[in-house]
């Protein structure tokens, strides 16, 4: 089985609950991600806990795109 990345997305700088979802590719700084109905830009990605089997557990900090312009 291919790797699965379980990501805890936390939105910086605004009142937003964030999201948890699986992705097939590791998110990277600068990536655009859709959480619910909103788009965000990935600022930072760290490993939250060690991988288990084919699953990798990551924490990503994201910001609304307009905050970066």
């Amino acid at each position: 089985m291919a790797a699965t990345f379980k990501v805890s997305y936390v939105v910086a700088g605004e009142e937003h609950p964030g999201a948890i979802l699986n992705t097939e590719t590791r998110p990277r700084q600068g990536d655009l991600v859709r959480l619910g109905s909103d788009d965000f830009v990935v600022e930072e990605v760290i490993e939250l806990i060690p991988p288990r089997g084919d699953f990798y557990y990551l924490h990503a900090t994201v910001r609304p795109p307009d905050e970066l312009t």
Partner: peptide, 10 residues
Amino acid sequence: RTIVHLGEGQ
């Protein structure tokens, strides 16, 4: 209060 959004695989 919204606690979290859950997406694919959750």
